[in-house]
């Protein structure tokens, strides 16, 4: 198990492969972000974006799914306090395939003896290597229990 003490500033991870479908874009948008450019093909064509795009929060949700599947196994993470500097850089469209590159930026000891916070910068890219979203997550890691190796 990888604890707070084991995380190294500068270490990098690459993970995830998420195929974005039209159906899922529409399903998420209907439930959480019913704006025309996420919901309606014709209205989206006439919008700033020139076609249907995923809700930015949907891209965030796909990111956390890739984190759950590809990053946190074997890590003593217990959720996150939040994030900073989230940028939606390029539209995400039906047929895009997303993946993640992450880098540990900083470790914050904090006041709690049992947890520490790790700042991890992640870039989510599409199949052309274009970064579509980036953010700095504040991930909570358990500290190594005393006596365990």
């Amino acid at each position: 198990m990888k604890y707070f003490e084991d995380v190294q500033v500068g270490e990098t991870m690459r993970f995830g492969r998420y195929e974005v479908t039209r159906e899922e874009i529409l399903e998420y948008a209907r439930q959480f972000d019913p704006q025309p450019f996420h919901l309606d093909e014709e209205a989206a064509r006439q919008s700033l974006y020139g076609g249907l795009i995923a809700s930015g929060w949907h891209t965030g949700a796909m990111f956390i799914r890739m984190v759950c599947d590809g990053m946190i196994a074997g890590n003593a993470t217990v959720g996150a306090k939040g994030f900073d500097d989230l940028r939606w850089i390029k539209p995400v469209r039906p047929g895009d395939v997303l993946s993640v590159e992450s880098e540990v930026r900083e470790k914050i000891e904090g006041r709690r003896p049992d947890f520490g916070t790790v700042k991890i910068e992640s870039r989510i890219s599409n199949q052309r290597g274009e970064v579509v979203m980036s953010l700095v997550s504040l991930v909570l890691y358990r500290r190594r229990p005393s006596g365990s190796a």
């Binding site: 972000d33 704006q35 450019f37 700033l48 959720g79 996150a80 939040g82 500097d85 939606w88």
Partner: peptide, 26 residues
């Protein structure tokens, strides 16, 4: 987001997306 979209609709605000967020704390 859902509640914000509904508020924009009530105000008839011409919202056209977002470049991002500075911070979010749960």
């Amino acid at each position: 987001m859902r509640l914000s979209v509904e508020a924009n609709r009530r105000e008839q605000a011409a919202a056209t997306g977002s470049p991002g967020l500075d911070s979010c704390r749960w």
